[in-house]
């Protein structure tokens, strides 16, 4: 196969979640995980700093913490669980996408329904 064939570089098989990358060797693998650790520490420290600070507009804090948490989960998925967007990882990503859908349905749906229920209860107690 010639290099002009426009084929993406792929591993030999579909990859398992958590599989160590074949290329780069031990040093490369440790470097990858160290980058992940550094990013995770950066996001965690930012999260804790924002939660305790008075520099930020107060109502924006929960949004910022949520965004940082989702970013950190992404970092963990990519650098530690090796769930990547590569073609050999498509099955793992599809399963993850379904899981995320269910999680959002459960949490979002519960909050939504219970908030409405709360409003109705308020009206009942006032009358």
């Amino acid at each position: 196969m010639s290099p002009q064939d426009n084929e993406p570089v792929m591993s030999e098989f579909d990859s398992a979640p958590g599989d160590e990358e074949a290329q780069g060797g031990v040093i490369g693998a440790i470097r990858n995980h160290s980058i992940g650790l550094a990013l995770a520490i950066l996001l965690t420290v930012t999260s804790f700093y924002i939660a305790g600070t008075h520099l930020v507009w107060h109502p924006s804090i929960p949004v910022a913490i949520t965004v940082l948490a989702i970013a950190q989960m992404g970092v963990h998925l990519v650098f530690f669980l090796h769930i990547t967007t590569g073609p050999e990882s498509t099955n793992n990503v599809m399963a993850l996408a379904f899981g995320v859908l269910i999680v959002f349905l459960i949490i979002g749906g519960s909050l939504w329904i219970m908030a409405h229920l709360d409003q109705n209860m308020m009206v009942m107690t006032q009358t």
Partner: peptide, 22 residues
């Protein structure tokens, strides 16, 4: 083990940090 850490990220963000700032 890695998944437990992901769940902990959600716990410290939602339970502890939002609880402490809210």
């Amino acid at each position: 083990w890695h998944t437990l850490d992901i769940i902990w990220v959600a716990i410290f963000s939602i339970v502890y940090l939002m609880g402490a700032s809210g």
